[in-house]
């Protein structure tokens, strides 16, 4: 069982690594794949909350938004060096997650969903009102984040492999967290909060740390998202986007980060494919997603696990 948890994601990583050389090397395909990987990272971070902690957040797009807007603010100030941009963006997202999580995690169930949604909307409206960064219209970056002064990230292949490396790093991190002492407490509290308290743990602390870590990874995904499109708009922070992320996690299966990864890739690829078939693709996509939830118990990961 354990080898399969690693075998599936490793196969996906290998496929993503060779994809540019087996016919997916054109701009369009690479853009699509990097989008899939970026949302893969975001979904993996959300799966730490949903699958690991039982914390169903409907405001996770705000974490990407904070990361993306950190890039914007720094870009506006002509700060583009990665070793400045990435830590600041990640810390900003982790800080936002810590502040909002400190309140949200005091609630549970539907209240938690609603309060994370509310914080997400707050972030959305804040972004919309930032007129110096284009308000509703968004902000076009002067350029991508630089790496030691070079414009390496503008190279399509370089960007592809940057996304892949960070994706693998995030997957490994979340997988390690879930297997650690910390992850054991987080999962125990999800399954049986009273028992977890009764042996001596305060679940709140573990959940808050998980929330901050998920926010940090979300922020990193936001940095990549901004770089991928060289454009950032409040639409990155809509609650629909948060819903999409939640959907990716459920579609893939909440049993581990590889589920979220598969869910994100499937979501992005199906979305792209349907959009090419018809302009009314949203009408089809909705029911397809609903059918998936009904028939794919345990998500895509659950189907692969079946013997």
């Amino acid at each position: 069982m354990r080898w399969r948890d690693a075998a599936v994601p490793l196969a996906i990583f290998a496929a993503l690594a060779v994809a540019p050389f087996i016919g997916f090397g054109q701009g369009y395909s690479l853009t699509l794949l990097s989008r899939g990987m970026i949302f893969g990272m975001a979904a993996i971070s959300l799966s730490l909350l949903v699958g690991g902690g039982g914390l169903i957040s409907l405001g996770h797009a705000a974490m990407l938004g904070v990361g993306a807007y950190a890039v914007v603010v720094l870009d506006h100030a002509r700060i583009t060096e990665a070793w400045m941009v990435v830590p600041i963006a990640v810390l900003a997202a982790a800080g936002f997650a810590t502040l909002t999580g400190a309140i949200a995690i005091r609630t549970s169930g539907v209240h938690f969903i609603m309060i994370t949604l509310a914080f997400g909307q707050m972030a959305f409206f804040t972004a919309s009102s930032l007129s110096i960064y284009g308000g509703d219209d968004g902000y076009t970056l002067y350029g991508r984040t630089t790496l030691f002064g070079t414009r390496a990230l503008e190279g399509r292949l370089f960007f592809h492999f940057t996304c892949l490396a960070l994706l693998i790093g995030c997957w490994a991190l979340v997988q390690a967290l879930l297997n650690s002492r910390f992850g054991r407490v987080l999962q125990a509290a999800r399954e049986n909060e009273t028992r977890t308290r009764a042996v001596g743990f305060e679940p709140y602390r573990y959940r808050l740390v998980a929330y901050a870590i998920a926010g940090a990874i979300g922020g990193l995904a936001g940095v990549l998202l901004a770089n991928g499109t060289e454009f950032v708009a409040p639409s990155y922070l809509t609650w629909q986007r948060s819903g999409d992320l939640l959907f990716m996690v459920i579609l893939g299966g909440v049993g581990g980060p590889h589920g979220a990864l598969m869910g994100a890739l499937a979501f992005i690829l199906i979305e792209d494919w349907l959009a090419k078939l018809t302009e009314h693709w949203r009408l089809i996509f909705g029911p397809v997603l609903i059918l998936c939830v009904f028939f794919l118990r345990g998500g895509i990961a659950g189907v692969l696990r079946r013997d």
């Binding site: 002492r181 125990a188 740390v209």
Partner: peptide, 28 residues
């Protein structure tokens, strides 16, 4: 904790009194 093995249930209790549980790496 229904999803944990019997051993993990007991180990969770041991963990609560032996060192910090804010350990993020290493398999529990």
């Amino acid at each position: 904790v229904p999803a944990f093995s019997a051993l993990e249930n007991a180990a969770l209790a041991v963990q609560a009194r032996s060192g910090s549980s804010f350990r993020f790496f290493g398999r529990a």
